[in-house]
């Protein structure tokens, strides 16, 4: 608590200087009680704390419409790292499709909070925990904003800087976390995401043995 001011009561009015009137105290008490309840629900409901569906529903229906516009619907979920690859620094790369040499990278040589905002944007594209449609939407919009500079067919990549193992040396390598071709056809923006190698592995068709008609693997 901060240093308290003098609490001497005003002799002429019987009130503390600067004290609130009774109706004001009642109204503020009511508002504080509601807000503190909403704050608790926001912290519980906005984190990966395993909050129940009921908590999230109450928070979403009653408090989010009020607390979200002033940017108060927050969970303060700041782990900063879990030691996972997705906690590494992210780089956004855009290039004309088929011309990787003309690529632009962000944040490149920027520093400070400006660079952090670019890294957050890049990381947002690779986010896997949330709605895949919204990450695809962000990726498509980022790439589409580059159509004017690169033409209506671009390649968008998000790269993660590989980190040294504990006690090791910085490998100085960028790993691909997201890659997609984004193009505009008849006014529509198409995002064609590179599939992981496993998803596009060739399908093995069993060879038919001519001797007995049975199938056998090559």
């Amino acid at each position: 608590m901060p240093p308290r001011a003098s609490h001497a009561v005003d002799a002429s009015t019987g009130a503390l200087p600067g004290a609130a009137a009774e109706p004001v105290r009642a109204a503020v008490t009511f508002a504080l009680a509601i807000y503190l309840f909403g704050l608790a629900l926001c912290v519980i409901g906005n984190t990966s704390s395993g909050a129940s569906l009921l908590v999230r529903t109450i928070k979403g229906k009653i408090f989010t419409p009020v607390l979200a516009p002033p940017w108060l619907d927050l969970g303060f979920d700041y782990p900063f790292t879990y030691g996972l690859p997705e906690d590494a620094d992210h780089v956004l790369e855009v290039a004309p499709f088929g011309d990787p040499a003309a690529r632009l990278r962000f944040p490149a040589d920027m520093a400070g909070e400006r660079a952090r905002r670019w890294r957050r944007l890049a990381r947002a594209i690779t986010e896997t925990g949330g709605d895949p449609d919204r990450t695809a939407r962000v990726a498509a919009d980022v790439a589409a904003a580059m159509f004017e500079a690169f033409g209506p067919d671009v390649r968008l990549r998000v790269l993660r800087r590989a980190r040294a193992d504990v006690g090791g040396v910085d490998p100085g390598r960028l790993d691909e976390a997201f890659a997609a071709r984004v193009r505009e056809i008849d006014g529509d923006v198409q995002l064609i995401r590179d599939e992981p190698a496993g998803a596009v592995a060739p399908i093995v068709v069993p060879r038919r043995d001519p001797a007995d008609g049975a199938e056998s693997r090559p």
Partner: peptide
């Protein structure tokens, strides 16, 4: 909330989180 969020990760228990934070060469 920040402390709880951190303690959900093993690296904050095994003592290596500081390394993973410092190993981010750019940020």
């Amino acid at each position: 909330a920040a402390a709880i969020a951190q303690l959900k990760g093993d690296v904050w228990w095994d003592g290596t989180a500081a390394w993973w934070l410092a190993a981010r060469a750019e940020s």
